[in-house]
Simulated scan of single mutants.
Amino acid sequence: MANERLIGKNVVITGASGGIGAEMARLCAEAGARLVLMARSVDKLEILKEELQTRFGVEVLVYQLDVSDTNAIKVVFADVLQSLGHIDVLVNNAGFGIFREAHEASIEEIKSMFEVNVVGLLACTSMVLPVMRERRFGHIINIASQAGKMATPKSSVYSATKHAVLGYSNSLRMELADLGIYVTTVNPGPIATNFFNIADEKGTYLKNISRWVLQPEYVARQVVGRMLTKTREINLPRWMNAASIFYTLFPRVVERVGKRAFNKK
């Protein structure tokens, strides 16, 4: 069932050229939202725009944007706000990871992950907050990860970026609690997207965990179904989130018992 709350609403999605970003765009378009899609691959965005306008007859704006470029973020979001007046929902979906042991991660890789996953997310959010606060309405959805709750070997830097996203989101949620603005974090486990083309160069991790990999359509449906609702977190799959909670309570036990599984990367 389509989310009727989205009819006529302005929804911005970063990293929208593929994976769960593109799937969320399809579901939002089906629900009657006006879409603003952003990604580095503008060619893919144009193809998706044509599909959504043809299938659903909705207005779709596309912008080429690398969220590691904070100056570009200012220009693009200023243009969106000039064109539409306001943004109802911002989905900070752009992000990437590289699985390496800490001593193998280069400074360039570390900086890139933080620039995209953390600084870019904060910069995009900062651009929509003033108008959302003025209107006392809006929803910020930050795509984080179960890795932000439970770090594992070879994901030290990636996990650190997602820990940062969770910390920022939790603080922001409290700041906006009395203004009618919702903040939701989405914490999925592994998803079958191009993410692993970069993160898992050898392909061994994805192969080892294939039975637990989430499908992007499923994740997108969970997110879009909760847009413009007071949802604190979306944790997928539930059993993995239960493991994260158990880890918080009994970290030594989990690290000892789960050692073999954690080292499948």
Rank of each mutant, 00 (worst) to 15 (best):
G8N: 11
M150W: 05
V213M: 08
V11N: 05
Q215V: 11
L6I: 09
A72L: 08
A147I: 08
H163V: 01
G95K: 02
V186S: 03
V62L: 05
A261P: 06
V224G: 03
H103S: 15
F96D: 02
P130H: 09
E134C: 13
G258W: 04
A72M: 08
R221K: 15
Q222E: 15
V224K: 04
N142C: 05
A22R: 00
Q215S: 12
K49A: 07
I73C: 05
E30V: 09
L121V: 11
I47S: 11
V80A: 02
V253P: 08
R133V: 08
G19T: 06
E108W: 11
N187C: 13
T14C: 07
Q64L: 10
P216F: 05
I141D: 03
M38H: 05
V91N: 03
E30C: 10
Q215K: 14
T161C: 05
Y218W: 12
I98F: 06
N208W: 04
N92G: 04
L121I: 09
R40V: 07
E104C: 10
M38K: 01
N142E: 07
P251F: 06
L122I: 14
C124S: 05
D88Q: 08
M38R: 02
T161H: 01
I181W: 00
A2K: 15
N208D: 08
I73N: 00
V89S: 07
V219K: 02
H139L: 08
E101M: 13
P188V: 05
S68I: 02
F114P: 03
A160N: 03
V253G: 11
A2G: 12
P237Y: 07
L179C: 09
V253W: 13
A177I: 13
V36Y: 04
S169K: 00
S41N: 15
G15Q: 02
L52G: 03
E4W: 11
T14I: 00
F246E: 04
G95M: 07
A147W: 01
Y205P: 09
A33H: 01
V257T: 10
I191T: 00
V80L: 10
G120D: 01
Q222P: 03
H139M: 08
L6M: 10
S41I: 09
S106T: 13
V119M: 11
F262N: 07
Y158K: 00
F99P: 02
R133L: 08
G19Q: 05
R252F: 13
R26D: 04
A261D: 12
F246Y: 13
M127A: 10
L122Q: 10
G21W: 00
I140P: 01
A220S: 08
L172N: 05
I110F: 11
V253Y: 12
L249R: 06
P190L: 07
F56H: 10
M240G: 11
E46A: 12
R238W: 14
V60Y: 03
E104P: 06
E104F: 09
T125G: 08
K264M: 14
V223R: 00
N10P: 07
R136Q: 15
K74I: 14
P216E: 00
E134L: 14
E201M: 13
L176K: 00
A151T: 10
M24Y: 01
N3C: 10
A39S: 11
W212E: 15
S126T: 12
V165F: 00
M174D: 15
S106R: 10
E233Y: 07
D66P: 01
L35E: 01
R100N: 13
